[in-house]
Amino acid sequence: MTGVSGDPNTPDLVCGSCDKPLEMRKVEASYLGQTFPVDLPCCPSCGFVYVSEELASGRMLKVEQALEDK
């Protein structure tokens, strides 16, 4: 476990290009012209951001739907 997210479901991922374990970083999420900061695991060298399926079909989907109904 890298433990970067503190989430036991996060797989033991490294960046394939940089061979670095992922770290939690503040990244920018945007949808329908709205942007907001969120903490997500990503490669510390190249900045490739990882989104787990749990996140995509859970919290992220909720936010997307809320923005669509605004």
Partner: peptide
């Protein structure tokens, strides 16, 4: 093994 998607875009600032 699996595939999934989202509409929101995320990137390092």
């Amino acid at each position: 093994h699996r595939a999934y998607g989202h509409r929101m875009q995320v990137e390092v600032k």
